[in-house]
């Protein structure tokens, strides 16, 4: 099992330079967030508020900001990133896509094949991604993230543009995977039901520059999370005004 890694984020300033006629946009100004090792933190907020920007800064894709992002436990943690689109290589098979970030060893191959079997996709391993449905492609992207046994898992609205049944199946799969392979998760979404169903902590972002308006510990049991009524009740109690 991977060592648990926490996160300390302090963004002093993140600004998007003006594009053409659009004015300068200040995304973060003195934003702070501490994530405990093993937590499932959901960042909840409307589109365009800077959630994806934050994930990109954490993953190291975006370095154009002032502030610091530090990892506790592991200075250079292994990161799995499930993007808003699957971002699979269309010219590589499902298995090759999952093997891409792994060392080229027989052991890694076995891990990947077992993971596909666990996720109910053993029959797709030699298929090219574009022949799969979007739901299946997202499943492969999830498998790729889990295959490298990450210390931190970043997820950017990984269930959007799926029908409810498929999205629900993927949510269940994610919860199941996390039970077997615990990892610190940062999950970005604009869907509060998504957040309540899976997160141990929900941070509601609002405003421009963005700041946390709510920081809620979700103490629901596994059973309650599967109960639509309990989710709606929780939503009414804590998140009523924000959505």
């Amino acid at each position: 099992m991977a060592a648990m890694t926490g996160l300390e984020i302090e963004i002093d300033d993140k600004t998007y330079a003006p594009l053409a006629s659009a004015p300068t946009r200040r995304i973060f100004d003195g934003f702070q967030l501490t994530v405990d090792p093993g937590a499932f933190v959901c960042l909840l907020g409307p589109s365009g508020i800077g959630k994806t920007t934050l994930l990109n800064m954490i993953s190291g894709l975006d370095t154009d900001y002032s502030g610091r992002i530090e990892f506790r436990g592991e200075p250079r943690p292994r990161m799995g990133y499930v993007f808003q689109t699957p971002r699979l290589l269309p010219w590589r098979t499902v298995l090759e896509n999952i093997l891409l970030p792994l060392p080229s060893t027989e052991a890694a191959r076995r891990t990947a094949v077992n993971l596909l079997t666990d996720m109910g996709m053993s029959d797709t391993q030699d298929i090219y991604p574009e022949r799969l449905s979007l739901g299946m492609q997202r499943r492969v992207a999830l498998a790729r993230a889990f295959a490298l046994e990450p210390d931190i898992l970043l997820m950017d609205e990984p269930f959007v543009s799926l029908d409810e049944t498929t999205a629900d199946k993927l949510r269940d799969l994610l919860i199941e995977m996390l039970a077997q392979r615990p990892v610190t998760v940062l999950f970005v979404t604009h869907d509060s039901r998504d957040a309540i169903r899976m997160a141990s902590r929900i941070i509601v972002l609002s405003g421009s520059p963005a700041h946390a308006v709510k920081d809620i510990q979700v103490g629901l049991s596994h059973g309650e999370r599967l109960d639509k009524g309990a989710i709606e009740a929780f939503r009414g109690r804590f998140l009523a005004q924000s959505q």
């Binding site: 894709l61 990133y81 993007f83 891409l100 970030p101 490298l148």
Partner: peptide
Amino acid sequence: DLLEMASVYRIGRWR
């Protein structure tokens, strides 16, 4: 998008 994916997953220059 794919180049970003390659960079996040640290697959290295050759891969």
